[in-house]
């Protein structure tokens, strides 16, 4: 019969319209409107008792006047903006700058005056990452031999001017230390999730223990 296929299609669209598992979820970003049911759930209370105690809030949310910040779930490996950098781990070797396909990392170092046994430690004067040209491939993170540079986990870094997109060393120092677990298996072993977890310090993040002085002598000085 002609038109049977059209009817079949209409059944499919109707199913998608009404069945709860197949409906389109619309994310109202960054704030979402919330119903009384959701709001009472958020405060951990029964909706009826909560509604009696907060009648104004109840009515307002019923009318769709109350909104709460919405957060879309992101995976721990998400390669985000705002790199996480640990000053204590960085030696200024500039591996990241060398391996960046676009050459957007600029590092200027000077001898810090204090010679340590394991290589020379340099003071980092300039560490500029031009986020405006970054494509978040993560090769700089992969190249870092001391686990000092990590991908960040945030993404809401809009600015009004292009020059504000250049992350300098001060911003890197003050950025929230919530690294992505991208190419950091040790963080995944810890079960770290930058989305929900706390900030993580430099001594928790290494791939291996710092060698003791006698170890260093055996391995590098006496050789």
């Amino acid at each position: 019969m002609y038109g049977l296929g059209l009817l079949k299609g209409l059944i499919v669209t109707m199913k998608n319209l009404i069945s709860p598992g197949r409906m389109f979820t619309i994310h109202q970003y960054p704030d979402r409107k919330i119903s009384p049911l959701g709001l009472s759930k958020l405060e951990g209370k029964n909706v009826i008792s909560w509604g009696i105690n907060n009648p104004v809030k109840f009515l307002k949310s019923l009318l769709g006047l109350i909104s709460v910040p919405d957060k879309i779930a992101q995976s721990p490996r998400f390669r985000g903006q705002e790199f996480t950098w640990y000053e204590q781990r960085c030696t200024g070797c500039a591996s990241c700058a060398k391996y960046c396909p676009l050459g957007i990392i600029k590092i200027v170092t000077s001898p810090s005056g204090k010679a340590v046994p394991e290589g020379q430690k340099y003071a980092i004067d300039v560490f500029d990452i031009d986020i405006g040209r970054c494509m978040f491939c993560g090769l700089c993170v992969e190249a870092c031999p001391y686990d000092a540079l990590h991908m960040g986990s945030g993404f809401e870094e809009g600015t009004y001017q292009r020059k504000d997109l250049v992350i300098n060393v001060d911003r890197l120092k003050s950025a929230p230390k919530k690294p992505s677990t991208w190419f950091r298996p040790q963080l995944e072993e810890l079960g770290y999730d930058p989305d929900s977890g706390d900030e993580i310090t430099w001594d928790q993040i290494g791939r291996h223990e710092r060698p003791s002085l006698s170890d260093q002598e055996d391995k590098w000085v006496k050789r």
């Binding site: 002609y2 049977l4 296929g5 079949k8 299609g9 499919v12 669209t13």
Partner: peptide, 9 residues
């Protein structure tokens, strides 16, 4: 079922 048997398609 939405597309393949649809007469218009």
């Amino acid at each position: 079922s939405l597309v393949t048997t649809n007469e218009i398609v």
